[in-house]
Each structure stands twice: as C-alpha cells, then as structure tokens.
Design a protein around this nucleic acid. Structure first.
Length: 105
DNA sequence: CGAGTGACCGCAA
DNA sequence: ATTGCGGCCACTC
C-alpha cells in the first residue's frame, strides 16, 4: 500500500506498459508526463535497464526514429514494430504524427 | 558525499 | 541539409 514514492523508473514503466498496441510515445513525452519534460535521457536509460517485458519498442524518439540499444539494433526494433502492425519506413522511422498516443486521449 | 553515465532534446554554425 | 556541442534529469559505482 502505501504510496510508494513513485520513482521515475516505476512511473516510466507504468506509462510504457499502458501504451496501447499500434501506438507510440516519445521519450520526452513520457518524461513530461512523469513531471520532468527534460528527463528524456533518463527514460532511455531506464528502458535499457528496465523490465524487458515492457513494450519499449513502442517508445521512440521525437523524430519517430527507433532506438539503438534495442536487442537486435534498429533491425530488431523495426521488426518488433512491424509485428505490432505499425508502419515503419526504410529509415527506421514511424509516422509519429499518426501513431503518437497521448494518455489524455 | 562526489563523479560518471545514458535507447534524449534543442539550438548554432 | 548535415554536423557538433551543451544541458537537463535520474540512476549507478
């Protein structure tokens, strides 16, 4: 119980786990929702060391580009997104304007 | 307690 | 258009 001091890590993982299939969020966006719009770097660091069961593949940078530290590199990341039903370009980028998702809507 | 790191972001030349 | 640099936050050693 108890309100655990919500760590950045727990909060970020919570948001990532709540991303619906077919949607993507940006690091800066997640950080902003956590209350720290400039902690996008930390979000990436948590991603690499966080729970591998979470859909980090739905997390992309603001350009809609895939991350590098993903298992398999951008290839694996791209395949993972394609498996989700998302459209990925040859440049390892997704249509952020179309697939970006906000918890508000 | 101090320093280093990082799957980023934004701006300047 | 591309490249380089700094800054910010939280976590780890």
């Amino acid at each position: 119980m108890s309100e655990k001091n919500p760590r950045f890590r727990e909060l970020v993982e919570e948001l990532v786990a709540s991303i619906p299939k077919g949607r993507v969020m940006t690091y800066g966006q997640i950080a902003a929702l956590c209350g720290h719009p400039m902690a996008a770097r930390q979000v990436g660091g948590i991603a690499h060391f966080g729970n591998p069961d979470l859909p980090w593949q739905r997390v992309v940078n603001k350009r809609g580009g895939l991350a590098s530290g993903f298992p398999g590199g951008r290839e694996g990341h791209k395949q993972a997104l394609l498996d989700e039903g998302l459209h990925v370009t040859n440049d390892y980028t997704v249509d952020i304007e179309e697939l970006i998702w906000w918890p508000d809507r």
